[in-house]
Design a protein around this nucleic acid. Structure first.
Lengths: 132, 132
DNA sequence: GGTAGTCTTTCCAGTAACTGGAAGGTCAAG
DNA sequence: CTTGACCTTCCAGTTACTGGAAAGACTACC
């Protein structure tokens, strides 16, 4: 499959996919005509990258996660410790998203959508949901 | 409160805080000595920025969210529509994080942490949890 | 009052992660 | 055999920081 197709399936722009190859995240085959040729496995990796980048993980973190994902020869203890530290981060991100969600939901349900610009929640956002 | 303190409380580096001021996200007072002087409200905004950036929202999106957060004179209908579209995005992000979480949890529970480098999950990651 | 150490300021340069555009080769349809 | 959509590389620009220099300000101790 060539890059446009892989782009559609992964949700990443072709530019970005080539960039990821440049920095060594991915090495697709090449067809005889010089076109990149993506396998389903490549596409899964790309989709994985698309998601984790969108969730605020850095490219380097993604590289680690991708290593878990693809490198079966790696020692399991190693895999396990990386995965566990990322799990904590994910847990935290979920909590933060829930807090943000709560805030915005209040906003949507308590504000009227009419001409009344008085949203009582806006003043209280700051103090609530203090964690970390 | 000056910038080091605001940095500690928000979790953002001082450099980043100054940068956010440069691009107009924040306008702290200035003390007589020229030092920036942050109010609690400023700190809440910074903390808010720290979180939403970490969750994969762009600075421009954060600017919008910050506008909801701070601009009480805005028409409620406007606030509501922005908040609602962001809510959908948050919902999606939570789902994606849960999927990632599931994958990594499988990894942690099924891999042994010993010398056995055979993680059966790694092969099946790709196919599962297809959404969007 | 001096001075060491830790702030803070601005400015300018560098990095990370893309993103756009030019110049040109490839391919499938008509 | 040309037209249009795709692909290639390369190079420049953008976004969102990040590091470091040079200089002013504050705290504390002698």
């Amino acid at each position: 499959m060539n890059i446009g197709n892989a782009s559609d399936k992964s949700g990443l722009p072709a530019k970005t996919i080539r960039y990821y190859e440049d920095i060594g995240l991915l090495k697709p085959d090449r067809a005889d005509n010089g076109y990149r040729d993506y396998s389903m496995s490549d596409v899964h990796k790309l989709r994985f990258l698309q998601r984790s980048r969108g969730l605020g993980f850095s490219v380097e973190e993604c590289r680690q996660l991708l290593a878990l994902y693809g490198d079966k020869s790696r020692a399991s203890a190693d895999v396990k410790s990386i995965a566990q530290s990322k799990l904590q981060e994910i847990e935290r991100k979920i909590i933060e998203l829930r807090e943000l969600q709560l805030t915005l939901k209040h906003l949507v349900t308590h504000c009227h959508g009419d001409q009344r610009p008085d949203c009582p929640i806006l003043e209280s956002i700051s103090g609530t949901a203090g964690s970390s």
